[in-house]
Design a protein around this nucleic acid. Sequence first.
DNA 1: CTCTTTTATTATCATTTGATAACAAAATAA
DNA 2: TTATTTTGTTATCAAATGATAATAAAAGAG
Lengths: 142, 142
Amino acid sequence: MDNRRLFYQFVAFTADVHRVKHDWTKDAKPDQLTPVQYTILEYIAVSQPVTLSDISDCYHMTMSNASREIKKLADKKLIEKKENEQDRRKQHICLSKKGQETMDETFSLVEAQFLHRIQHATEAEKEEISRALDVLQAKIFY
Amino acid sequence: MDNRRLFYQFVAFTADVHRVKHDWTKDAKPDQLTPVQYTILEYIAVSQPVTLSDISDCYHMTMSNASREIKKLADKKLIEKKENEQDRRKQHICLSKKGQETMDETFSLVEAQFLHRIQHATEAEKEEISRALDVLQAKIFY
DNA sequence: CTCTTTTATTATCATTTGATAACAAAATAA
DNA sequence: TTATTTTGTTATCAAATGATAATAAAAGAG
C-alpha cells in the first residue's frame, strides 16, 4: 500500500468532513453565540464536566481567552461552574438546563441532516458505516 | 441498527477529526498566514484552479471578504490569478511557485505526523483504513 | 515552612474577521 | 437593444479573536 496515496486520501477526507460539518451546523447554530462560543459549548456538551484547562488545551486557546468566553457563556446562563472538592483551584464546567436545551435543539437539527443522508441506507450499509467510523477512530483520529 | 446511536458516533467522530487535524497542522502552518488565509490556501492547493466564487461558496464567506483575503495572498506572492477565456468575469486562481513550495512544506510536516501514526500498521490494516475512508466519503461526507 | 507550579481571572491592545454598501465589467435573458 | 444576473473590487465599520501582562489562590515540591 502506498503511504503517500493514503495520506492524500486522508487530506481529502478531512477537508470533506470539515465542509459537511460546516454545512450541517451553519443553520443549526444558536445565533446568540459566536463561532468560538459555539465550539466551546459543543465541546462541553459532549465532554462534560470539563475544566477551563481542558478547553484551553483542546482548542489551543490561552487560559485568559478561554476564561473570557466561559464567562460570556455563564452570563448567558448556558453553563454552570461547580467547585471541585479534590482540587479547589479547578472548576467543573457543565451545561445548565438552558444550555442543555439549546444544544439538544441544535443537535436535533444536525441529526435531521444526518438522517436524511442515510435514509436510503440498508441495514448492512449502516453497519458498514459504523464499522468504518470505529476503524478510523481507533487507528487515526485518537 | 439504532440511528440515534449512529448519529452520536458520527458527532464524536467529527469532533475527533477536528481535534487531530488541528493538532497536526498547528505547528505546520506558515506563520505569515492568518487562519482564514491558511484555510483558503489549503483549499486552493487541493482544488486548483478555483474561482473566487468557489472559495466564497465553500467557506460561506462573502465575495468581498474572500476578495480581500485573496488580494493579501496575492500580495504575498503565494497565488496567481489567470484570466478565464470563456468567461472574462471569472478568474482561475492557482498557487504560485512560492505558494506551491510553501504548501508542499506544510503538507510534508503533516504527512510526517500521519506516517508516524500509521507506522506500525500492517498492510491489511492500511487497506482497512483506506476502505473506511472510501466508505465514509461515499456515504456521508460528500 | 518556603519556593515553584498549576489553575484561573481581569484588563488592555492589536489584529482578524464578518457585514454592508457602492461600484463596475462581462455575460445572459427578454 | 435593454434589463438583469453573475462575478469581482474597494472602502468602511463593528465585532470577535489572539496575545500579553498583572494578579491571586490553591496545590505540590524541597
